[in-house]
Amino acid sequence: MSEVDAKTLEESEERAYGFWLFLMSDAILFSLLFATYAIMVTATDNGPDRTEIFGYWRTAANTALLLSSSLTMGLASIAICETRKSASFQWIFVTMILALAFLVLEIQEFAGLIAQGAGPDRSGFLSAYFTLVGTHGAHVIVGLIWMAVLCLHLALRPIGPEIQSITERLTMFWHLVGIVWIGIYSLVYLPGLYQ
């Protein structure tokens, strides 16, 4: 390995490590939102509670979409590692479609809740719910933009250490988004649906 390569490798390793630290910090942020939700879940102020507002099919579909997008993201990252350009495009594209579908469902859900008077300003419970799930949704949006940028990179230059380093961080980010969703599904939706 030449000296330059060693330096690039070291730098992308550092970037991955730093980004991982950032994700840990982000995970703390989510854990505080989870804790807030747990505290506020009974603070319904005579408004709707968690047994009344969640849809069985939609949340199940969301879970399926996001988890399979984690899989396709993994496949994309493998393709980029192996510098197979068209496969990379394909898998990122699929991931984006899945994430977009997830977002559409989520926005539908939020819009429906707000329309039936169960918006975030209705009660402490709904504030906590919207903030937790909305923050996760915002992460999905960031991920989507990031994927679009990655596509742009792929279109404009050959796959090299730079693109691989971006992909590495994006993949970590996307898996965190998936993990947080598992938390949301099992701590927010399931207890509401099966109570």
Binding site: M40, A43, D45, P120, D121, G124, T131
Partner: peptide
């Protein structure tokens, strides 16, 4: 900030805030 600008009820006296 959400409480103050968007009418959320995390810490308000009413609406189940804590």
């Amino acid at each position: 900030a959400l409480d103050r600008s968007a009418g959320f009820h995390f810490f308000t006296n009413d609406g189940g805030g804590n």
